[in-house]
Amino acid sequence: MRGPSNRLINGLMIGLVTILAACTSAPPPFNATEVTGVSYGTELQIADTRGERRSLSDFSGKVTIVFFGFTSCPDVCPTTLMRLGQLRQKLGADGAAVQVILVTVDPERDTASRLEVYVKNFDASFVALRPAPQELESVVKAFHAIAMKVPTADGTDYTIDHSSTIYVYDRKTRMRLIAQPDMPIEQLAADIRRLLADS
């Protein structure tokens, strides 16, 4: 009589452990840093290259990727844009549901037409936004980002130190992830597939 009851208890224990494990196992972490619920970068209101004010809700239904840059940045910014283009290709058919947005930190030199040609050179779907020079500071602040003019050594020109962070929004335009642009494309693609699937 002891045998079967022991077996029953064992069975119940195993069942209990399985249920507990199922309850506590959170989904695996994203490769990028999850920032769901943060108070920064929750909205934007910036003119596009046609002068139309765009907000995040315009891109609702897509996974939106926002980052700061400028067209006179010869190295890091174009490398990031190129990699985001490759990301869309890597995602195949899902790539159509990904919107990349470049926000210029150099509205003085980056005219609307210059920005338009620049981003389309990387991917025809990319969008560029151009805050007015007097708006730039508040836009950058709203993302807890930085953008700082630095004169070149000979003083004739300037470059801009700026945040390299990539901000990723889900289909409901909630900020979900932040990443650095050197993150392996495969890892970022895996995260974006999850965001596309869960919202």
Partner: peptide, 8 residues
């Protein structure tokens, strides 16, 4: 692209 005066 046209308008761009800088490259790497």
């Amino acid at each position: 692209a046209s308008g761009q005066t800088v490259s790497g």
